[in-house]
């Protein structure tokens, strides 16, 4: 991470650092509120997340079979696009690729690791993509939280205009930014990066052992009731610890924890619904960026009553 630090310090207070940004499909559709709030908060911190031209779906969930190369092509193609951004001068000597979606992050970083460690696999994929320029293996995949950490949470604290005072938020990490260990951005058993961020926003982070327990992921397609049970465990434990809402960085976790509350409620009538935020939405509120960047319409459980109660948004 030392390279990251030196590169970000290159920017002057007035200069805007441009970094290639990989959105992923869901950030353009059901998680548009995640993207909008993240881009706006990044800008407030002097960073322009520059969308990679002609990016393609990363083919999320990293292929685990050892002989399976074709499912890595999608990720590598995106790395070639980052090279092209440098070639065409859209960014200057910037090999970092920042993603918001935890699943895209895991997929891209895993592929990148395999390409960097396995020259034969890389050359096979380069051969297959003969119409593209070769991937040189220089891209560095970063999650947005890592980028924030490299800026320093102090800098974020300085930017806060409306501290999230008294807002009890349980950070939920899920799997994809923590595991496997060589991909994870934090301690896989006791992560703290979201807690640190929430503290800098003035919120009260609530710790729960379920913060790193899987929400059921893609099982939501075929086994929504199993996912609802997992969501119930995660949500009700957070509530027991006093949480008023949860924060996440994964659009699939968000769907399973937020939209599946419909199924949770059906199975557990006593369950009280609880809002799920993207952590960037909370940043946008604390930065006082304005309604157009919050995107609460896309949250399944409306968080506005809670925010109004805490006097964090206008009546």
């Amino acid at each position: 991470m030392t390279t990251t630090k030196t590169e970000t310090t290159k920017t002057t207070p007035t200069g805007i650092a441009k970094i290639p940004y990989y959105p992923g499909c869901t950030l353009k559709t059901t998680a548009k509120n995640f993207e909008n709030s993240a881009i706006a908060t990044a800008r407030a911190l002097g960073i322009e997340l520059l969308e990679i031209p002609r990016w393609n779906c990363c083919g999320t969930v990293f292929s685990l079979a050892d002989d399976d190369l074709i499912h890595h092509v999608a990720s590598v193609r995106n790395f070639v696009r980052v090279q092209e951004m440098n070639d065409y001068g859209l960014v200057k000597n910037e090999n970092r690729l920042v993603t918001l979606c935890a699943m895209c992050f895991n997929t891209l970083k895993s592929t990148n690791l395999r390409m960097k460690n396995n020259a034969e696999d890389l050359s096979k994929i380069n051969d297959l993509m003969y119409r593209e320029e070769d991937y040189q293996g220089k891209v560095e995949v970063l999650h947005f939280l890592e980028l924030l950490k490299s800026l320093g949470f102090e800098k974020i604290r300085d930017r806060v205009k409306k501290p999230l005072k008294g807002l009890k938020i349980a950070p939920y990490y899920g799997c994809m930014i923590l595991r496997p260990q060589e991909i994870g951005i934090d301690d896989p058993e006791d992560p703290t990066i979201q807690k640190d961020l929430l503290e800098s926003l003035g919120a009260d982070p609530i710790d729960t052992p379920y913060k790193r327990v899987c929400c059921g992921s893609y099982q939501t397609v075929k086994e929504k009731n199993i996912v609802a049970e997992l969501a119930y465990d995660i949500l009700s434990h957070a509530q027991k610890e006093g949480a008023e809402a949860l924060a996440t960085v994964c659009p699939l976790c968000a769907f399973n924890l937020d939209n599946r509350q419909k199924e949770v409620k059906a199975a557990h009538p006593d369950f009280e619904e609880i809002p799920i935020f993207y952590v960037t939405q909370l940043m946008a509120i604390a930065f006082g960026l304005g309604n157009e960047f919050y995107g609460f319409d896309q949250n399944y459980i409306d968080p506005r009553p809670l925010l109004k109660k805490k006097a964090l948004i206008e009546q």
């Binding site: 393609n56 074709i70 092509v73």
Partner: peptide
């Protein structure tokens, strides 16, 4: 299920960027 292999684009007799529009 698209794996971004670009085979469709290579096959297109109209030289369209087929994979791009699938994306």
């Amino acid at each position: 299920r698209c794996v971004s292999c670009n085979t469709c684009t290579k096959a297109c007799p109209q030289d369209l960027e087929v994979m791009d529009y699938v994306q």
